[in-house]
């Protein structure tokens, strides 16, 4: 009988269990009713089975979101593990939906499930992609907005993974600032 290496038999376990959420903007319903948990997974193989199965972000109708968060964390500021945190926010222009959005989202997912942020991976809660007519947004959420070393390391790694040029800066906003903002955007606590 042929001997199969364990590699071919067992699924590759991830450090964390992750949950994919889908939000569809239906104004006739309550906001939370529009947020659906798709499924959760904790192996590389199950991640790909999910990713290859669902619609690409760039093909989602405007007003929809995908979120991938560690199991047990809901993709909203109000969650106990998000409320003291913040997000690195990447604003895309309209052309980037076709050129960059899907690549950016996949590279972000691979950073999350692969624990690419090394000793700061525990600071990462998840990531969100918002598909919007006025410009799509991708954000990476961390659990504590008062940890500059972790936040800067995570921001640099994110830019590097997405191959965002050095001269293009991205900003980190604390959720508390975003919640209480008066203007259109919250102030950046960090930039990289």
């Amino acid at each position: 009988s042929t001997l199969l290496s364990p590699d071919a038999l067992i699924k590759h376990p991830l450090q964390n269990k992750w949950a994919l959420w889908f939000f569809k903007n239906d104004r006739t319903k309550e906001w939370t009713a529009n947020l659906k948990l798709v499924t959760s997974f904790d192996t590389v193989e199950d991640f790909w089975a999910l990713y290859n199965h669902v619609q690409k972000a760039s093909k989602l109708p405007s007003g929809c979101d995908y979120s991938l968060f560690k199991d047990g964390i809901q993709p909203m500021w109000e969650d106990g593990q998000n409320k003291d945190g913040g997000r690195w926010l990447i604003n895309l222009n309209k052309q980037q939906r076709h050129s960059d959005l899907d690549n950016f989202w996949l590279e972000t997912l691979l950073c999350l499930i692969g624990e690419s942020f090394e000793e700061y991976s525990d600071d990462v809660n998840g990531a969100v992609v918002n598909v919007r007519n006025k410009g799509d947004k991708l954000s990476l959420w961390t659990r504590d907005a008062t940890r500059p070393d972790a936040i800067m390391k995570i921001g640099k790694k994110l830019k590097d993974s997405l191959k965002i040029p050095i001269k293009i800066a991205i900003g980190f906003q604390a959720h508390t600032d975003t919640m209480t903002k008066t203007g259109s955007t919250a102030r950046d606590r960090f930039r990289v």
Binding site: Q15, V44, W48, N52, L110, C111, G114, E115, S116, E118
Partner: peptide, 18 residues
């Protein structure tokens, strides 16, 4: 404790394995 992490290239290799 020890952490399980995966390189991007390895994850991409796994995409098409059966």
């Amino acid at each position: 404790g020890s952490k399980i992490f995966y390189e991007r290239s390895f994850l991409l290799q796994c995409r098409n394995s059966p």
